[in-house]
Simulated assay, not measured.
Amino acid sequence: MAFEREWGTLAGIGGGGAGGYHRFAWTPADLALRAWFREQAARRDMACEQDRNGNLWAWWGTPGPGAVVTGSHLDSVPGGGAFDGPLGVVSAFLAIDVLRERGVEPARPIAVVDFADEEGARFGVACVGSRLLTGVLTPDDARALRDGDGVTLAEAMRAADADPDALGRDERALERIGSFVEMHVEQGRALDDLGARVGVASAIWPHGRWRCTFHGVADHAGTTRLADRHDPMQPFASTVLAARGMAERFGGLATFGKVRVEPGATNAIPSRVDAWLDCRAPDETTVTRMVKEIGAAARRAAGLHDVRVEVVTESSTPLVEFGDALRDRISAALGGVPALPTGAGHDAGVLSASVPAAMLFVRNPTGVSHSPAEHAETGDCVTGVFALAAVLEDLACR
């Protein structure tokens, strides 16, 4: 098993080390990742193509209906870990190596996919490639997305020699997928607690992103009396605390992880604060109630400081329950493995509304993710590769 060697070919792209990875869509790092993917496909004599939405596909066999598809994504959050996404892509290529070494000849084509912009780190919407593929995200909405520097997705794609005018639901690609199995490092430590190296996903919690904009009045930090201020930072701070309280009250999760302050000067009262709220819970009703209550808390706090607030939905994903038939078949192929829900969103969750989809998880001993401390032991990763190979053989040969 050449896991460490193959893993090492990817490690130097887009950062790494104590600062984590910064692999954002349509940047030089992303283009280098795409080149790596094409090289991996070429080394295995797999035909490689980029679809209309920027997703990359490598084919073992003739592309066509009923294909067994695996893979994940290669992009990262800011300062992200090494395993979130890339583990699924590297493992997919290595699983194909395992099957070839065994002399397996699939009855159906097998494809490895790298979905574009899964994390949404640059343009703010997660799973852009799979959402466009399935029609969940419209082409016009996608093209209009902007990064922190005001660059639109359309402009970024053109700069990378991709065609934003071609974006949209891709019936041809969807018709080829007979089943999709995504391997991913577990973003939690449930498998470690169970003493298991590999598990399957039962469901993905409903989740979404909401932009909260607090409009105040810029002024001098050293001369403006406290009573005369319209400081948007004050109600924002109150809202952060309220969100934590709501999460504890409702048994969900609420996080403000991204904030933009204007004008952004140390000696100036802000005129505006944009903050992005991430909410997740076991059911959609709870997510809705949490967001409603957090919005109400924001408006109450804004009123105390003569500040105006807006709460806008940027993305929302319903509860995903992976189909029993595919999940049970995968578990049986592996001799029975634990099934567990996750609060993390994935391309498999997006695809599940259109094609049979499932997920395999590899143990994460610390449970840490979206951080440079994210980790999986090499032995567990190798176990994951062999597990994925067994699943692909079962789905493509029987």
Rank of each mutant, 00 (worst) to 15 (best):
A268N: 00
P263N: 10
A243K: 04
G264E: 04
P270Q: 01
M246V: 15
G245P: 05
E262L: 10
A247E: 03
A268C: 11
T266P: 07
L253I: 07
D274H: 13
G257V: 11
G251K: 00
D274K: 12
R249K: 12
P263G: 09
R272A: 07
W276E: 13
K258L: 13
T255L: 11
F250G: 07
V261K: 06
G251L: 01
S271M: 03
R260T: 15
A268Q: 06
F256I: 11
A243P: 08
R272L: 13
P270K: 02
T266C: 10
R244S: 00
I269N: 02
E248N: 10
T266A: 15
P263K: 05
V273T: 12
I269K: 01
R272E: 13
G251W: 00
A268P: 00
R249Y: 11
A265D: 01
K258Q: 14
P270M: 01
L253E: 06
E248I: 04
V261P: 06
F256V: 10
E248A: 13
V261D: 04
I269S: 02
R272G: 02
L253D: 04
V259E: 14
T255M: 08
E248H: 12
D274Y: 08
A275G: 15
I269A: 02
D274F: 08
R244G: 03
F250N: 04
S271F: 02
M246R: 15
A268T: 13
P263S: 11
R244D: 00
G245M: 10
A243F: 07
V273N: 09
V259S: 14
E262Q: 09
V259R: 15
P270S: 00
E248L: 12
N267P: 06
G264R: 02
R249S: 07
S271I: 00
F250Q: 06
A254K: 07
